[in-house]
Write a protein that binds this DNA or RNA. Structure first.
Length: 828
RNA sequence: GCCCGAGUGGCGGAAUUGGUAGACGCAAGGGACUUAAAAUCCCUCGGAACUCAGUUCUGUACCGGUUCGAGUCCGGUCUCGGGCACCA
């Protein structure tokens, strides 16, 4: 055999064998425990990038390890195939999105195969296939019937670059998460998923994920859901029977509420000023405020401004005539879009009152201090005792919160409530390449869902893509014009498509029965495989995808499809791949192409370096020199095994006691099995597992120099065999090849993960650090588990120890067996 | 402002329960082999000092504490990263 390591031929050989024998196919099975390992599926953008390589390599190690450790492992792969890049490519180069997408899928599938990943390709799905999105349309209709889907006209985030609205989760620092351009508010008709109905459960169930999810992600979700408890208060508008509703966390300050602030988007703004002479001023203010993008408008530095609407509302406790303002800092999105202003105890309201000369009434006095509205320079937001609050005077403000809320309930002016920051999920997209929303507008019957038996509503293929902002399918008469499923009369179809995050909210269930064609999935199969035991993906989905998927799982449960609450038991968020101090990106010109790495160094070396360079959850620094090191290691392994091939084949692993000369190697072998098993199983620390195997290789090189007898080679064979088994999840091709070269018949992937012999893990001797007063003075080697007396005697006989004990009395000796002996002494 | 992380050689990173700080790898320097180079193999590699086979001092962002013993625990400070934030 040629002794030079040439990964390309080895890798393609084994990839073909794996593919031809369908070795990675799995089915429901009862004698092994199941394990569902999932990596976030990719968008088929054209080529895989280093982020994919890292993510999927980590997953593949776990999948292969778990298989060898005796689990029935589901490890599927598919494509998050709807989305805007396909459409943009179509506009730019006149390729149909469908063709573009499927060509990309073919190319990327081949790339993933070249990496040697152990996917069950029979389960591959693409979310743009009607067989997939059909079920999503069914869920939509069932959710609609249950009141979990509704349509509403609202001010929404609009990205002018992408020509579509965006969900709140998809706006990052006022910019579109995808293209980075400024997002504006625009009034739009939109379909919403009522995720807020699950806000409390999404928050509560975070408790169930504590053990398996990174705390960071759970915190982010908690912040995003943003629960706060407070009171809903109704203020009557003077001269009408209408109320303004307000949410406050400080009902204790209600007696000090002297004006009202409304968001510019508040519906009352359109009617309130009528007849007051303020109409013009208000509408000008609203128009100019709404032109400013939300991010700027809500930044700290933005000047707080407002305009009087000409109307008043009545403080329900004091009867105070509160002027109603429209103010640019009030968010329509949060609470009720209206804020009762208490300038004495809220800094923002204080500034506003000073600016417009509004009344300030102190209602909470801090201990040992008397606040005076005339001399106050800022609001007092701390605790204290109520004043100017009628029967509540003298009460501690913390107690008054409940007391005032109770009182409001009694006079029917308010109630205790819980408010969430989380908004309903707007899922309409004015784009072509997505799943059509299965609704119909009938002149007689109004908005009605498509009849379930007519699903799927197929996305028409004969479109012209222009990127003008109207849904392209709205212009296709044959699609839009339809008949009403209720009355059979003329009707028009909804022409918006669904947010692509809807597809990724349930794909992990479809993998369980990907070929089911009479229902979304088979309940038995989903119940067998789900929940996902280990999910792996990027931190950028901490809120977006992971929150939506949790929500959707709960919805499908309540629709009766499944019987569990959470989709992902454990989550690993892997770090980014960094080069030259920045995330790899085309614009920075620091992109490394995986395909080049595969052809230069092979898939195995690429995989190895991705795993070795950093622990998975940390960002990984790409290093061109580093991958050469990985390649060097594999070459070293290759030569090691093939150089000894003859001697190894002619001997067998023996259960006899090894020759003395080989005892250290046998010990190292079992220690390495233990270390590698624990690093994978308990810690997901592949870098230290690889380091341990490198050490074993280094030891094997030394052993190879001295070995002569078959008995000695037998121990080497034991080490090499186990090494190859352990390496196989990391570098599967070279491991299979060398395994085969040693004459093993069974394929490594089908081989069992090795057990270690605990008696061979322990060293015979222990190196003990000898300290005098906590400082290292010598190291001694003693037999394991030696008595303190013997160790102490040895320690005291060390010259350097004696030196430091001169003219001193020993006060105390601390002995930790096999580790350390510390002699505490004081000068005479 | 609130809530999380993280700070260790020239670099990526080890040190799992408080017990020899720097495993493994990269880079660098030296040597062997070679006509030469590549490849390979061996040695050195945190800093400083000295009486240099060795030994001492010092060192895990900074200041302090607990402990026989702290990278690890506690209190405080600084820096960096992340999330939320005019949130009523």
């Amino acid at each position: 055999m040629n002794t030079e390591y040439k990964p390309q031929s080895v890798e393609s050989k084994w990839q073909k064998i794996w593919q031809d024998s369908n070795i990675f196919g799995v089915s429901q099975e009862n004698d092994k425990p199941k394990y569902y390992l999932l990596e976030m599926f990719p968008y088929p953008s054209g080529r895989i990038h280093m982020g994919h390589v890292r993510n999927y390599t980590i997953g593949d190690v776990v999948a292969r390890y778990k298989t060898m450790a005796g689990f029935n492992v589901l490890h599927p792969m598919g494509w998050d195939a709807f989305g805007m890049p396909a459409e943009n490519a179509a506009i730019a180069s006149k390729i149909h999105p469908k063709k573009w997408t499927y060509e990309n899928i073919d190319y990327m599938r081949a790339q993933l195969r070249k990496m040697g990943f152990s996917y069950d390709w029979d389960r591959e799905i693409a979310t743009c296939a009607p067989e997939y999105y059909k079920w999503e349309q069914l869920f939509f209709i069932q959710m609609y019937n249950k009141g979990l889907v509704y349509k509403s006209r609202a001010f929404l985030n609009w990205c002018d670059q992408c020509k579509t609205v965006l969900a709140n989760e998809q706006v990052v620092e006022g910019q579109c998460w995808r293209c980075g351009s400024q997002v504006f508010l625009k009034e739009h008709d939109q379909w919403f998923f009522r995720i807020t109905a699950y806000a409390q459960e999404l928050l509560d169930d975070i408790e169930k994920l504590k053990d398996g999810w990174p705390e960071r992600v759970l915190n982010m979700q908690k912040n995003w859901i943003g629960r706060s408890t407070g009171t809903l208060i109704r203020f009557q508008i003077e001269g009408t029977s209408e109320d303004i509703e307000v949410f406050t966390t400080r009902p204790d300050t209600l007696h000090g509420a002297t004006f009202m602030s409304l968001a510019p988007e508040h519906p009352l703004i359109k009617t309130l000023p009528t007849g007051t002479g303020q109409e013009r001023e208000v509408s000008d203010f609203v128009a100019s405020t709404l032109q400013v993008d939300t991010f700027t408008r809500t930044s700290d530095l933005y000047e707080k401004e407002g305009v009087f609407t000409g109307r008043y509302c009545i403080n329900p406790l004091t009867g105070f005539r509160m002027p109603i303002y429209v103010a640019n800092f009030v968010l329509y999105d949060y609470g009720t879009g209206a804020v009762m202003a208490v300038p004495s105890h809220d800094q923002r309201d204080f500034d506003f009152a000073k600016k417009y000369g509004l009344e300030i009434i102190v209602v909470i006095q801090p201990e040992g201090e008397t606040l005076d509205p005339k001399t106050m320079e800022c609001a007092y937001e701390g605790e204290g005792v109520l004043v100017n609050s009628k029967e509540f005077n003298g009460m501690k403000n913390t107690d008054a919160m409940e007391a005032i809320t109770k009182h409001l309930e009694a006079i029917n002016r308010g109630s205790a409530t819980v408010n969430f920051r989380l908004r309903d999920w707007g899922i309409s997209r004015q784009r072509y390449w997505g799943a059509p929303i299965p609704m119909v507008y009938c002149e007689k019957c109004g908005t009605v869902p498509v009849d379930v038996k007519d699903l799927p509503v197929l996305l028409p293929e004969n479109v012209e893509l222009t990127g003008t902002g109207i849904s392209p399918i709205a212009q296709i008469e044959s699609f839009v014009n339809t008949t009403c499923p209720v009355c059979g009369g003329k009707a028009k179809r909804e022409s918006d498509t669904m947010d692509t995050f809807v597809e990724s909210s349930w794909y992990f269930m479809r993998y369980c029965s990907p070929h089911s064609n009479d229902k979304p999935f088979d309940r038995n199969e989903v119940q067998y495989w789900m929940p996902v035991d280990q999910y792996i993906g990027g931190i950028e989905h901490a809120i977006l995808h992971l929150l939506y998927a949790r929500f959707y799982t709960k919805v499908l449960r309540d629709l009766g499809y499944i019987g569990f609450d959470e989709p992902f038991q454990r989550l690993l968020t892997q770090g980014m791949v960094i080069k030259d101090g920045a995330k790899m990106s085309k614009s920075k010109g620091n992109v490394v192409d995986p395909e080049e790495l595969i052809s230069n160094y092979g898939a195995d070396a690429t995989r190895l370096f991705c795993l070795f360079a950093a622990p998975p959850e940390k960002d990984m620094d790409w290093s061109d020199k580093g991958i050469e090191g990985s390649y060097r290691f594999l070459s070293r392994l290759w030569r090691l095994v093939l150089d000894m091939k003859e001697q190894l084949i002619s001997t067998d692993v023996s259960s006899e006691r090894p020759p003395k000369s080989m005892e250290p190697l046998k010990r190292k072998t079992h220690q390495t099995i233990k270390k590698v098993s624990e690093d994978i199983e308990k810690r997901f620390r592949f870098n230290t597992a690889i380091a341990a195997m490198m050490e074993l290789v280094n030891d094997l090189y030394r052993a190879k120099e001295t070995a002569r007898t078959p008995e000695e080679f037998s121990v080497i064979r034991e080490a090499v065999q186990n090494l190859l088994v352990m390496l196989s999840p990391f570098v599967p091709h070279i491991a299979e090849e060398l395994w085969d070269a040693l004459g093993n018949r069974e394929m490594l992937f089908r081989f069992s993960w090795p057990d270690y012999d605990p008696s061979w893990c322990e060293e015979q001797e222990a190196t003990i650090a000898v300290q005098v007063n906590g400082k290292l003075r010598a190291t001694i080697t003693v037999t394991r588990d030696s008595e303190q007396k013997a160790v102490e005697a040895r320690a005291l006989s060390e010259a350097n120890v004696k030196r430091f004990l001169q003219d001193s009395d020993i006060k105390k000796v601390i002995y930790v067996p096999n580790k350390i002996i510390n002699i505490i002494a004081a000068a005479r």
